[in-house]
Design a protein around this nucleic acid. Structure first.
Lengths: 253, 253
DNA sequence: CGACACTTTGAAGACGATCAACGCCGGTGG
DNA sequence: CCACCGGCGTTGATCGTCTTCAAAGTGTCG
């Protein structure tokens, strides 16, 4: 049943790249498929790392409580993302964020010892893990740069682009997969700012009403996002989006 | 001569922890001691990763050019920091920042293949590397949080604390190791803002005139920094600083 | 001495946060 | 069935902080 489906796609994630199929089988056996309900807290900051997770389906938010008492979402993770590896390898071996289920989620859960043992036993896996964590590190840096250099409008546009690519939505019309408070928190802005920002995006090719998003002007959108981001030309997400937008206009012609 | 000194301290960095001494000797032989002059660009963004560096002495800034043409310093690295590992393991294997010598610097330079081979051959080393990169990732995230939640005054105080601890300066009086433009860039603010901020810090226990810094009120300073940072209680740097301040007041009594 | 990099100071402006009020909707309980 | 409530989203007005532009001061090095 479900296990079969999940294992099918999980075995293709970069973490397992380069491993023989039979080794993958062996490794994946250690995982347990778990379904978490919306709102469930998987772990809290400061707890010893006990598990490593691979998300099969659904969304999980990572967040931290700030000094002034409210919570800042550091990331929203979805299918094929992994959780816990960075925290575990970190000196102290404690979780560095809280994790809570956004929408009902299915995850593959491994005891954390599995991660260490596998890294020790299979150097290919260890290198993949290094790659994975380096990638996260780079993303975190890029994100910081974005926060510093982009206006809230640009942040929002960049975010919309990302979810459009990740979930393979149709740029012409799609729905926001999360409620606006969560998105605002993820983008590091207040809900009021987020709300106001959405209205101003019309001139940049994006129309949002309710939770319907329509990118009605591909050129305007592309230009707007592009000159916001210092690495736009090297950005896989941005390229993917351009392709989507291009395909959409092809179809119309 | 110099090689002996350097190798002495380098062998104790976390990256080599848990390796037998003879293995360390063997590994360190692959490194070449290089001295770079101030202003020298070691590598530029987008170049293929060719080397892995361990800083023996001096300071190196990592920076990226922003869309609007000026440069943002992402980090200033000093003794015992490593450079290149994250970029290398990153898909694409290109440097993700520019690196330039701030003050004359001595580094231990390894061909990048050494890094991969060592990680493959010694699983302890691979795990250390994972630990190192996870640490960087955590720092990047914390930094982002700081940028989001702290005022410029708090950012500056936090920075002064860090350099005071890293360089083991006397909190009672020390000199800024870099010029103010560089520090401002590192903190993600304009030089004007930085300059103005310094004046306002007197009431928080910090006096800055020219490039002399004096922390003249330990309690005020500690409180100010502490309620700025959500993780202050878990922050090794902050604890170290408290100890320094405590010792200083001990001596006076 | 003059050129140039670095730093400081002033004044104006932009942007997002904050505080406050209200509309909308779905659910619960009388 | 209706009234009330709470979560969510929008809108308005105000405020503080940092940036920006401009100018002048400080220091160093040829």
């Amino acid at each position: 049943m479900k296990t079969a489906i999940s294992t099918g796609s999980v075995r293709d994630i970069p973490l397992f790249a380069g491993l023989p199929e039979e080794v993958k089988d062996e490794l994946l056996k250690a995982g347990r498929l778990v379904k978490f309900p919306k709102g469930k807290v998987i772990f809290a900051i400061g707890e010893k790392v006990t598990h490593f997770y691979i998300i099969i389906e659904g969304a999980i938010k990572l967040f931290r409580d700030t000094a002034d008492g409210y919570e800042k979402t550091t990331d929203i993770l979805t299918t094929s993302h992994t959780i816990g590896e960075r925290d575990f390898f970190h000196p102290g071996h404690v979780y560095n964020t809280n994790a809570e289920i956004v929408n009902e989620a299915t995850v593959l859960e491994f005891p954390i010892s599995w991660l260490k043992n596998t890294a020790q036993k299979h150097s290919v896996f260890a290198l993949n893990l290094l790659s994975l964590i380096s990638e996260y590190e780079y993303m975190a840096e890029l994100e910081a740069e974005h926060q510093a250099n982009m206006s809230s409008a640009q942040m929002v546009a960049c975010f919309l682009q990302r979810i459009c690519v990740i979930h393979d939505y149709n740029p012409g019309e799609f729905e926001l997969p999360y409620n606006k408070s969560l998105i605002a928190s993820r983008l590091g802005m207040e809900v009021e700012t987020f709300s106001r920002t959405l209205s101003t995006l019309r001139e940049n090719g994006i129309t949002v009403s309710g939770n319907k998003v329509r990118i009605h002007n591909a050129e305007a959108f592309d230009e707007f996002v592009c000159d916001a981001c210092s690495v736009a030309e090297d950005c896989a997400t941005h390229k993917a989006m351009q392709k989507k937008l291009f395909n959409a206009s092809e179809k119309l012609a």
